[in-house]
Design a protein around this nucleic acid. Structure first.
Length: 200
DNA sequence: AAGTGTGACAACCGCGACGCG
DNA sequence: ACGCGTCGCGGTTGTCACACT
């Protein structure tokens, strides 16, 4: 796939469906190869970003709650612009989403939010959380949010989930270069041996 | 109504880290 | 040790919608 043929810009619904199906089939890995096998004219990076920030299951897309807002301000103050780390403390939120939210909503308001927080949380748990964030044990979410743990867990879950979705989506769209079933059936003819597709 | 400014969000880019042969 | 492919992260840009003049 040559660079000049790669699509950029907003993702189409068909592309989302195609990506979702192939991630369900192959897992969150080898994005460049996945993009090619899925027939997506996108870079692997672009596919990964789209999946991580928009298509991944269990993502929240609504507005941030007051508690989330406070936590972002608190963590930003403590960790700096370590958005990935901050995102692991906020279930269902992505680093990109938090980063954007910070830039557009909180950066200017941060001192105010911190002040409000100080007042309203003097007798609450926030104070103690603040000083112990780095030492908190990994929550279930945090564990799942780690890129490495996520891969393992999602691979396990997606084998079953993926099959259902694949069948349903394939019947509803006719735009794939390969349907996932066709792809799966054709897997025998692909050389998946070696490190490229090994799970370990 | 038309032009301009601004906010919000999606997506891209560059770079460093890591694993593997 | 080195090169290559891949991934993750943080900064930046592009685009769209809406408000304002």
């Amino acid at each position: 796939m040559q660079g000049e043929h790669l699509r950029k810009g907003t993702w189409l619904q068909e592309e989302d469906e195609q990506l979702t199906n192939f991630v369900a089939l192959l897992g969150e890995r080898r994005w460049d190869s996945l993009a090619k096998l899925a027939g997506l004219r996108r870079s692997g990076k672009s596919c990964r970003l789209r999946w991580m920030n928009y298509l991944r299951p269990n993502l929240k897309h609504g507005p941030f709650s007051g508690e989330e807002e406070k936590l972002i301000v608190q963590l930003q103050q403590q960790l700096g612009n370590k958005w990935a780390k901050i995102a692991r403390k906020l279930p269902g939120r992505t680093d990109n989403e938090i980063k954007n939210y910070w830039r557009t909503h909180l950066r200017k308001r941060a001192p105010q939010v911190r002040q409000e927080e100080k007042v309203c949380c003097e007798d609450s748990e926030w104070e103690t959380k603040d000083s112990s964030i780095d030492t908190l044990p990994l929550s279930d979410w945090e564990l799942r949010s780690s890129p490495y743990e996520t891969r393992i867990l999602d691979w396990i879950m997606q084998n079953e989930f993926g099959e259902k979705e694949v069948e349903q989506d394939c019947n509803s769209t006719g735009t794939f270069n390969y349907s996932p079933q066709e792809f799966a059936e054709g897997c025998d003819s692909w050389d998946f041996s070696g490190s490229l597709w090994d799970l370990n």
